[in-house]
């Protein structure tokens, strides 16, 4: 894996995270009370946010868990998708990284 092992991610006020999900639909809707942001998330984005919401976690460990959860082969495309998602959430003020603290 080439995930950025030195970055740790944490949720920004996880108590303000709200979710709407339905069993027969893949996507999730996320609402952040702090920013008022409403996002339609694919399963990967939802998994990443929920995992970080439950505990602070390094990007490397998060990537390992993600490939196990979705039963996917580890490849650069997936790692890149994870990294892009995390940095997008960071820009929206939903996540904090050890690099940004």
């Amino acid at each position: 894996m080439t995930a950025e092992s030195n970055i740790t991610w944490k949720a920004n006020f996880p108590d303000s995270f709200l979710w709407a999900e339905w069993e027969d639909e893949e996507a999730s809707v996320f609402f952040h009370r702090g920013s008022g942001e409403t996002l339609l998330l694919n399963p990967l984005g939802a998994y990443l946010l929920k995992t970080i919401c439950s505990e602070d976690i390094s990007e490397e460990k998060l990537a390992q868990r993600t490939v196990r959860y979705f039963d996917l082969p580890v490849d650069e495309e997936l790692l890149s998708a994870i990294s892009v998602s995390l940095h997008t959430f960071e820009q929206k003020g939903l996540l904090l990284s050890s690099a940004s603290q």
């Binding site: 709407a20 339905w22 639909e25 809707v29 409403t38 996002l39 339609l40």
Partner: peptide
């Protein structure tokens, strides 16, 4: 329309 998408569109 899926409920998730309807939610986001109504919010907007």
């Amino acid at each position: 329309v899926e409920k998730t998408r309807a939610l986001v569109r109504i919010a907007e």
